[in-house]
Design a protein around this nucleic acid. Structure first.
Length: 406
DNA sequence: GTGACGATCCCATACGCTCC
DNA sequence: GGAGCGTATGGGATCGTCAC
């Protein structure tokens, strides 16, 4: 088996060496190093092109600056770090990464031909892009990327938990190398972005977030993601370097956008009161699920005060339920009382429960249920399943009347 | 002890979304 | 176009409380 693998590696490397000069002749395009700032590296494992660039921390990217992330309190990331929410998340100890691949599949036939890795170093944000010029040179790319990953204590990506990292792990496994990083803590920015803006934006794809939240305008250099596998194929088989330079631009822009997106999200979570355009209901749920109850209550209050009627109703509902869960019944009841003239049946039911079970006042509970039934009949209360709601209310009323009768 | 009820948890299922 | 994750939803099981 080992011999077979060695032969395969040799064959692939041989093909790579043959195809490189051919590539230059077909289209007479300039070599990659003339189009992308970088240099070729030769390792025992093969050749790899390294493009490297450092950005000042006050470098703008859209409406934000790269260094904005450094002011975000580390603890805001805890709800989004997977199983390692307790791990420290220092921007200087983590790496941002994004890979360009030959397709969307997860199998052995999908290669990562470009790995972009960014990290804060002193007064700069340094971006390194490792590029494999042919399929036979993959191990060199993996070796160089591994050195960067191994020097980090955390990962940041966009959809990297589902796509980029598992794919990279597969590539290392296929070369019989251990993945260079345990994979945790891993901040996948797609998760908090969805939590914050799912109900506000038509899409939470990185390109949409760039446009709608970050003010990033890509130049004509950019290429759409779906074309990337084809462009790499053109590079390998026909030596087309110009479109490949555009892929470098695409990858670098993705990485810089991740940095400013993280800054935007981090500041928003840290100070939700100063963040218009955020889905405070989802943010509150995220806080509540992590036990940050006061922050959750604050987020729900923000939602409750929204000018968007639907968001305001949801905010009040979540606020009341969380207060009840925390045993703050009087505060919860105040919310429900204020809601009674709205078009939601929920506050009637919650108040009826409180009167029946906690306050031992079935007569008041009955009045509330009767009023809810009446409003439901008149169509003043909207609910997803009016018939079922009517049944539930009737059942509750019958029980209360039995109780009162006795 | 029994029954009714609410609260909570767990599980299964369906669906939408994102990456190249 | 493949695949995995998160979310929403609904049903069932379990537990604690209370009244009888």
């Amino acid at each position: 088996m080992e011999t077979l693998l060695a032969k395969l590696r040799q064959t692939l490397r041989g093909r790579s060496a043959e195809s490189a000069p051919l590539a230059g002749r077909v289209h007479r395009e300039p070599p990659l190093e003339e189009l992308v700032e970088g240099r070729w590296l030769t390792l025992p494992e093969g050749r790899c092109f390294l493009a490297e660039k450092a950005f000042a921390l006050d470098q703008p990217h859209g409406v934000h600056r790269l260094g904005d992330l450094l002011a975000v309190p580390h603890e805001v990331w805890a709800p989004f770090l997977g199983g390692r929410g307790d791990a420290p998340f220092d921007p200087y100890e983590i790496v941002f990464f994004d890979v360009e691949t030959t397709g969307l599949g997860r199998g052995a036939g999908t290669y990562c031909f470009l790995v972009g890795i960014g990290r804060f170093e002193g007064e700069t944000f340094r971006l390194r892009q490792y590029f494999m010029p042919d399929f036979g040179e993959e191990e060199a790319l993996l070796e160089l990327a591994a050195r960067d990953f191994a020097a980090s204590s955390g990962l940041v990506s966009f959809n990297g938990r589902q796509f980029d990292w598992p794919l990279l792990e597969t590539r290392y496994t296929l070369w019989r190398r251990p993945p260079p990083h345990p994979g945790e803590p891993h901040l996948d920015l797609l998760l908090p972005a969805r939590r914050l803006w799912r109900s506000k934006l038509p899409s939470c794809a990185l390109s949409a977030l760039e446009r709608d939240m970050l003010g990033v305008m890509r130049t004509e250099e950019d290429v759409p993601g779906y074309l990337i596998p084809e462009l790499y194929s053109d590079y390998v088989s026909r030596g087309r370097t110009r479109p490949m330079a555009n892929v470098f631009y695409h990858n670098a822009t993705d990485l810089l956008s991740m940095v400013t997106l993280a800054a935007r999200i981090g500041h928003l979570i840290a100070q939700p009161t100063e963040s218009p355009g955020c889905d405070f209901v989802s943010l509150g749920r995220a806080y509540a699920s992590q036990g940050h109850h006061e922050r959750a209550l604050e987020a729900f209050r923000r939602a409750a005060n929204s000018t968007d009627r639907q968001e305001a109703a949801q905010g009040r509902r979540e606020l009341g339920l969380l207060l009840k869960r925390l045993g703050r019944f009087d505060e919860a009841m105040a919310i429900w009382w204020a809601e009674l003239e709205g078009n939601d049946v929920h506050p009637y039911i919650e108040l009826a429960k409180q009167f029946e079970h906690r306050l031992k006042d079935p007569a008041s509970a009955r009045q509330l249920v009767l009023r809810a039934i009446e409003r439901l009949k008149w169509g003043e209360i909207a609910c997803a399943d009016p018939d079922r709601t009517f049944q539930d209310l009737s059942y509750r009323l019958a029980r209360l009347e039995r109780h009162l009768g006795k």
